[in-house]
């Protein structure tokens, strides 16, 4: 039998690798694992691809049918609404490609007790959970959304400005953070009540409200969808920012909302982990 040899030189962070770089590598490795899983079964891969494409086309197709008949909605012109739909489609694609599969996988880990292995890894457990699964084909939806945004901005009457694009990117990032923070809160709920995978479908259904401009909602609903379930932060406000209609003050408020949600989500996660009992073996 061969000797094991010297294994005392334990693994550890390289002195020259900044933690940010480590986490970039880690997320890339997680996404690679999901992509490898998707590629493992050829038939499944192509079926998933076709369904993903079909899903994206079906989501956008009605807009092409209706675009000639779109009238102004609460100050939003036809092409402004195309920009809004583009923002919504991008967010929806990111949700379906990245967040939803990760949430479902993490909930399954909690249910089966295999979260133990996630928590034993020397990296942030929350980040590992939020990147543990990925459906690459659904990124097509994100590309479709981006194309809609570009088309809406190009064909619309509003001139595109650098500050508008910057405000759109900042607001979009704030929206994405808000989406992830909301997802973390849903995930934390599954520590207490198992089998909450269907909550991700509720999230998906709720996100449909993001198809509409903030102005169509009555004040109470608008506040609800801005501060409690920040759907408008994710879609309507980024579109408004791109169209140059959002003041920097409002952008700041939206960033604050996202930061608050993120802090709340992180705090809830840490509490949930401390109360984790691990499924019996």
């Amino acid at each position: 039998m061969r000797a094991l040899g010297d294994m005392s030189d334990r693994a550890g962070p390289s002195r020259h690798v900044p933690r940010v770089l480590f986490y970039v590598r880690l997320v890339a490795a997680q996404l690679e694992m999901s992509t490898l899983t998707a590629l493992q079964y050829r038939l499944g891969f192509w079926t998933e691809g076709l369904l993903g494409l079909l899903w994206s086309v079906l989501g956008i197709a009605p807009l092409f049918v209706a675009v000639d008949h779109l009238g102004a909605v609460e100050g939003w012109g036809r092409w402004d609404l195309v920009v809004l739909t583009g923002c919504f489609t991008m967010l929806s694609g990111l949700f379906t490609a990245l967040l939803q599969p990760a949430l479902r996988e993490s909930m399954t880990h909690i249910l089966k007790g295999t979260l133990d292995y996630v928590l034993l890894r020397p990296a942030d457990g929350l980040l590992l959970c939020l990147t543990c699964a990925f459906r690459p084909w659904h990124l097509v939806e994100v590309l479709g959304g981006a194309a809609l945004v570009i088309a809406g901005l190009s064909l619309g009457a509003v001139p595109v400005t650098a500050t508008g694009v910057l405000a759109g990117l900042v607001t979009g990032a704030a929206g994405l953070i808000a989406l992830y923070a909301f997802g973390v809160l849903v995930l934390c709920a599954s520590f207490r009540a198992l089998q909450l995978q269907s909550l991700t479908h509720v999230m998906e259904a709720l996100m449909d409200f993001g198809r509409w401009p903030a102005q169509v909602f009555p004040p109470l609903l608008r506040a609800l969808f801005t501060f409690v379930i920040p759907l408008l932060v994710m879609t309507s406000y980024p579109a408004e920012a791109l169209l140059g209609r959002l003041s920097w003050g409002t952008v700041g408020q939206l960033v604050a909302v996202s930061a608050t949600l993120l802090t709340l989500a992180r705090w809830t996660w840490l509490r949930a982990i401390r109360g984790y009992t691990s499924a019996s073996s």
Binding site: A11, G12, P13, S14, V17, F22, R25, L26, A29, Q30, E32, M33, L36, T37, Q40, Y41, K112, G113, T114, D116, Y117, R121, P122, A123, S281
Partner: peptide, 24 residues
């Protein structure tokens, strides 16, 4: 013995490679 850390669908070698990144 009753739980697994290896991804069910992938060869173990892919899982080992992932651990290489995680444990640096």
């Amino acid at each position: 013995g009753q739980k697994r850390q290896l991804s069910w669908d992938l060869p173990a070698i892919d899982n080992f490679e992932f651990n290489r990144v995680v444990y640096e």
